[in-house]
Design a protein around this nucleic acid. Structure first.
Lengths: 110, 110
DNA sequence: GTTATCTATAACCAAGTAGTTATGGAGGTC
DNA sequence: GACCTCCATAACTACTTGGTTATAGATAAC
């Protein structure tokens, strides 16, 4: 994952409204009106947030009749987690042990 | 972890210079001059970035003679990872299984 | 084709961000 | 106390961001 992409993903996550939108989309695909109803904010504001999320690859949209349903695309969150994982040893004392466990799990799978 | 804190942490991580600073501090504590030498940027710009990182709790500083050494504080990264973990099931098919494993590890520890 | 609904876009505003140069303050050293 | 060195702060600029209202575009229904 390159710096441009990380800039976009972390930037998208740096706003509580956008995080709340992702939380909602984790439950169910939603249209702009549904999302607008959840916040004390205008519809264009929500559309803008969706555009940011879409730009970071965190949301996809497809027409469903007259509506456009927003759908969570979690893949970039995996990459962000991957970046954070490099620092895990600095906060998780049991990281080394956990790491070994995950390695053995991988081997078992392959 | 509350929204204010997540805003600060993700916001701090949304800049590649600041991520690079964290990468450096993961290797060794550094003073402002050292960090400035690593980037094509003025010293006050680096001082500003450090202030943002400090505000997010990602960096602490203590005087060491005439220098102020910046030190990585990784705890907030743990919290950010915790937030992202809520979405793990959406990108990691083997999450459920992994989760069970971690649970058993916790029990074993306690 | 008119109308209604849903959403995107345009134009604007206030505030924040990322950088600059210039300068001042705090800590050692002589 | 004079002088360096290290760093922070001030003042400024250009750009971005997060919101607004007003409006236009696309699709479906009648």
């Amino acid at each position: 994952m390159d710096d441009d992409q990380l800039d976009l993903v972390f930037g998208a996550l740096a706003d509580r409204t956008r995080r709340a939108i992702l939380a909602r989309l984790a439950e169910t695909d939603s249209n702009v009106n549904d999302l607008t109803a959840l916040f004390t904010m205008s519809q264009p504001a929500i559309s803008k947030h969706l555009k940011v999320l879409e730009g970071a690859g965190l949301v996809s949209r497809n027409r469903q009749g007259t509506m456009r349903l927003s759908h969570l695309e979690a893949e970039p969150l995996k990459d962000a987690t991957g970046w954070l994982a490099d620092y895990r040893e600095y906060w998780d004392a049991s990281y080394a042990r956990l790491d070994a466990l995950l390695d053995s799990l991988k081997k078992e799978k392959s």
